[in-house]
Design a protein around this nucleic acid. Structure first.
Lengths: 185, 185
DNA sequence: GACCACATGTAACGAGTTACATGATTTG
DNA sequence: CAAATCATGTAACTCGTTACATGTGGTC
């Protein structure tokens, strides 16, 4: 498991409350790790109990208090140890792949419509990532340290979205299911 | 959830016992879906109880009996219905990405060593996939129907392994951590 | 006789999802 | 005053992993 460690990475970059972490996960680390606020609060509570993070209650102007979490010395030790641990090879899990493989046992035309939707979703996300790259990393050659890591992970997200788009396109093309745009007269 | 549906796809291609399914998952659908035999047996039991599959006990020569599962009419209906259902966009989950992003909070050199191992693992799997492609699909242009789908999913697996290798290589290169091969004198 | 492969399971746990609950403050 | 946003949580459930259990038959 690694949500603990993903949270430690995020909190090392900047201390945060549960809700702030949730939002940050949607944006950045979320390319490769998704977590709901329920799960994040639960794990944060466990990390606090285990002494991996310290909590400071911060009063806010016109808003409820928030509990800001910061990695403790023990938390930093745990994170460093995890980073140095070898990992088993990962295999991605994809429902879409199962559907592609099983297409002949259902309505291939209906599936094709969903594939085009899925491709459009990935194209949208790709465009978002590329915009983030332009705005946040205008000069990649000058990056180093944590900022360089962040850019490289964003590059990974971009590469992955391109993989999805290419794969779906290849599938539709091979089955001759691409829609040719009609030019309106 | 979709292990049920993945099993229905596999059983539609060919009826099988639990253990045979487990092995088939390691080979083909396993590019994008991994499942242990425990999980497969449990889900097969549920599918049998729900009437999605029929079971025939087959005696074998010099081996224990096996229980061969075949999709029922109800199972085929369920599969077709699932195939026509729109799906939410998928996000892959990767520990490796978290480690890349968190590298500056640990020992980057130690991480780099594991990254090279991970890249070697993916290169090995890529070679296996490419060999499967040569052996099982020597003439892709002639494929159609279920066989074409199987080839396209294998192509997806190949594309994904290439993504991994490229990404890790980009990371190591950007951090100037590539090992230059020493030429033995 | 020990060991391995085949074949099917059970039990316990941990991780993740979904739905719901609570209370504050700002905006319309 | 109704609705939306901020902020933190509980409860119930499903999914997935790990470890263990059981029995057959062939091989060294």
């Amino acid at each position: 498991m690694a949500l603990e460690h993903a949270l430690l990475v995020a909190l090392s970059e900047r201390p945060a409350s549960g809700l702030e972490l949730t939002r940050r996960f949607e944006k950045s680390l979320g390319f490769f790790w998704h977590a709901t606020h329920q799960q994040i609060y639960r794990v944060l509570g466990r990390m606090e109990a285990d002494g991996w993070v310290g909590v400071e209650v911060v009063e806010q102007d016109g808003r409820p208090d928030k509990r800001v979490h910061t990695p403790s010395a023990e938390g930093r030790r745990v994170l460093a140890e995890w980073l140095a641990t070898p990992m088993p090879m990962e295999t991605f899990r994809s429902e879409l792949a199962v559907k592609l493989r099983g297409a002949s046992y259902g309505d291939r035309a209906a599936l094709a419509a969903h594939l085009r939707d899925a491709r459009a979703d990935h194209a949208t996300r790709l465009a978002q990532y590329e915009q983030m790259e332009r705005e946040q990393f205008p000069e990649p050659a000058a990056l180093e340290g944590a900022a360089l890591d962040q850019w490289l992970v964003l590059r990974g997200g971009i590469g992955l979205e391109r993989f999805w788009i290419d794969w779906i396109t290849d599938y539709l093309t091979a089955h001759d299911l691409e829609v040719v745009e009609e030019r309106p007269a």
